[in-house]
């Protein structure tokens, strides 16, 4: 039930309009980080305030919302954010990827392919892909203006020279529509290929850094690579111990203090529906 002491979606209408205008600009300029007047939210910065503000500005009474953190619906932060929207909008929530119209996520893209009727909203801690190489915003802004991304290429090249491969495994930088270098948020690079030509609209909110950006549907998203060092995603020798999947992202679970390990899907909905599918078949 919606708590009527708060406006629908918590934010006041003027804030929503400001964010909505920023979202429209973000969609029109794929991969460009639109500065916005991020508000203090009742959750701390760094805990999803950007994603929450985007979701709060987009969500309507007919939406079905799914919230995941690390691929799971039942981790405490995902539960907390879902409860926040249940309380302030009263919308239906779901754990099933296929049933959701809006998916707010931290650090994963669901394994179940997204569709045209869905919008995925990423929580972004550090929207600027160049920040670790150049902390000054005046400088990184100029680089984006000129599409001058040599700094990043040099960094990746140095990785290869030193380690034989690119030493980035999550938040792996991507190029959007051949123009803007973009941080995909700390999703594992395993998820990067899912971003490209995705039928769903992808929105990104960074509350603390006050940026919103977007990848429209059916837009090319390339992970940076070199001809002789193509982009590769993680592979596991094990299969999921619960559903047997060999194509999903697996989390390692420490099972005892003698080095025992098992691997299970990070996407709990995907894993769960595969398990129940098996039971039905049996």
């Amino acid at each position: 039930m919606r708590d009527v002491n708060y406006n629908f979606g918590y934010l006041d209408e003027r804030t929503k309009r400001m964010i909505r205008r920023a979202i429209l600009k973000a969609v029109a300029i794929p991969g460009y980080q639109v500065p916005f007047g991020s508000r203090e939210m009742p959750l701390p910065y760094g805990w999803g305030t950007g994603g929450i503000q985007v979701t709060a500005s987009v969500i309507g009474p007919n939406d079905v919302l799914k919230v995941i953190d690390q691929g799971a619906d039942d981790t405490v932060n995902a539960v907390n954010i879902r409860r926040f929207f249940q309380r302030t909008t009263g919308v239906t929530t779901t754990q099933r990827t296929a049933d959701a119209t809006l998916i707010q996520t931290r650090h994963r893209i669901p394994e179940t392919p997204l569709t045209e009727r869905q919008t995925i909203i990423y929580q972004v801690p550090v929207p600027e892909p160049l920040q670790r190489l150049e902390p000054r915003e005046l400088e990184t802004r100029r680089m984006h203006a000129l599409a001058e991304y040599g700094l990043m290429h040099v960094k990746l090249y140095e990785d290869i020279a030193r380690y034989g491969h690119v030493a980035a495994t999550y938040d792996y930088p991507v190029m959007v529509n051949g123009r803007y270098l973009m941080a995909p948020s700390p999703i594992p690079k395993f998820d990067n290929p899912k971003m490209s030509m995705n039928p769903a609209l992808q929105l990104f909110g960074a509350g603390r850094e006050k940026r919103i950006y977007a990848v429209p549907p059916y837009t090319k998203v390339e992970s940076l690579a070199f001809d002789d060092h193509p982009f590769e995603v993680q592979r596991w020798t094990a299969a999921c111990a619960l559903c047997g999947s060999r194509s999903s992202f697996l989390d390692e679970i420490v099972t005892d203090d003698r080095g025992g390990r098992m691997f299970v899907c990070s996407d709990t909905d995907y894993c769960g529906s595969r398990q129940s599918g098996k039971e039905e078949a049996a």
Binding site: F8, L24, V27, P216
Partner: peptide
């Protein structure tokens, strides 16, 4: 209904500009 009508209109605009 300013709150809900604005939301609905925005979603229409967002869909139109995204697609």
């Amino acid at each position: 209904s300013p709150v809900l009508d604005s939301q609905r209109t925005f979603r229409g605009a967002l869909e139109a500009l995204s697609r």
